[in-house]
């Protein structure tokens, strides 16, 4: 076994540099990836475990990332895959079909029946919702809907990107998003009416 040739040495050095750059870029995105992870699962602990599994896998398979493409989406694709595996392993009770109402439902409920005689400012109506209510309602959304709502409405991904991350057709993203938001609004309306304040 001889010494590596200068070309080989250069390749190794280039490789190491590319890997370090990849790892640094991935870590810079950790906060943003975490925001999505945190809402895909029920607890902080689960989100942290999922992040660690995701980053461990990402660092192992960094070569399959194509530089110049959306790294945040690439990381979230790993994360959602791992999460689906975990969700299957948990095999929770079959989910009942969630109820949904139209898109005006939440406003109508919060503003009350007389709302249009003396219309209120939207901000005042919105003030009847609480931060905890939103967190709770989101966590109650069935998986398939929550994944899409979280990626698009919280992660800020376009439909096509969410479709790639979840490996489902764009049309499915659109229909799940549409229904998911309506289910979410219905749950928010319920949470607001449960709240005595």
């Amino acid at each position: 076994m001889g010494e590596p040739s200068p070309t080989e040495t250069r390749q190794l050095a280039d490789d190491a540099r590319a890997r370090v750059r990849f790892e640094e870029e991935a870590l810079e995105l950790a906060d943003q990836v975490y925001q999505v992870a945190r809402r895909l699962v029920g607890s902080r602990e689960e989100a942290e475990d999922l992040m660690q599994d995701t980053y461990a896998r990402a660092f192992r398979s960094w070569r399959s990332y194509q530089p110049g493409t959306n790294l945040r989406a690439w990381l979230l694709r790993i994360l959602t895959n791992l999460n689906i595996d975990k969700a299957r392993a948990r095999q929770r009770r079959p989910q009942t079909e969630p109820l949904e109402e139209g898109d005006y439902f939440l406003y109508n409920r919060l503003a009350g029946s007389g709302g249009d005689q003396q219309p209120e400012e939207e901000e005042r109506v919105l003030a009847r919702l609480s931060q905890d209510g939103v967190v709770g309602a989101l966590s109650e959304l069935p998986h398939d809907f929550r994944d899409v709502v979280v990626l698009v409405d919280i992660g800020g991904f376009a439909y096509a990107e969410a479709a790639q991350i979840l490996d489902i057709p764009v049309g499915t993203v659109m229909s799940r998003l549409h229904r998911g938001r309506r289910i979410l609004k219905r749950q928010l309306a319920e949470e607001a009416s449960d709240d005595p304040s």
Partner: peptide, 19 residues
Amino acid sequence: RFEVELRRFVRNAVVEPMA
């Protein structure tokens, strides 16, 4: 208008900094 505000509210409500 309410929907626009609601979307912003939801986005902000769920932010939880990473440890």
